[in-house]
Nucleic acid binder design. Structure first.
Length: 98
DNA sequence: AGCCTTTGACCAGCG
DNA sequence: TCGCTGGTCAAAGGC
């Protein structure tokens, strides 16, 4: 069972569901902040045939505990403004060429 | 023992 | 009212 390699954003999430969105024909995973007092949610969608290619991360809600546990050493070079406010879509393309 | 992940089914809103 | 979709929950297994 090999889960996908998601771009570490510095927060911890618990996957609670996964579905295939027909509208865009993409896989969508549903993650929730591990903290109870945190209504922050995260959705990750990627192409069923490109698990390590272009993926989109959508943050929904704001964290209420702050202080990311695991730092994100160059979290895939996403936008500096990560999740902290409501809703935030981040596109991750294979732009990270070493 | 606890934690995490995965799958199926259910619910709600829309046309 | 039905069918469809998107979103969420629950249970089991493994470390």
């Amino acid at each position: 069972r090999q889960h996908l390699v998601l771009p570490e954003d510095g927060y911890e999430w618990k996957k609670y569901g996964q579905k295939l969105i027909k509208n865009i024909q993409k896989n969508r995973s549903y993650y929730r902040c591990r903290h109870k007092l945190c209504g922050a949610k995260k959705k990750v969608e990627w192409h069923p045939s490109d698990p390590s290619g272009n993926l989109r991360v959508v943050y929904n809600g704001a964290h209420q505990h702050s202080s990311p546990a695991t730092s994100a050493p160059g979290a895939s070079g996403g936008s500096g403004a990560s999740n902290q406010y409501e809703l935030g879509a981040q596109y991750f393309g294979g732009a990270r060429s070493h």
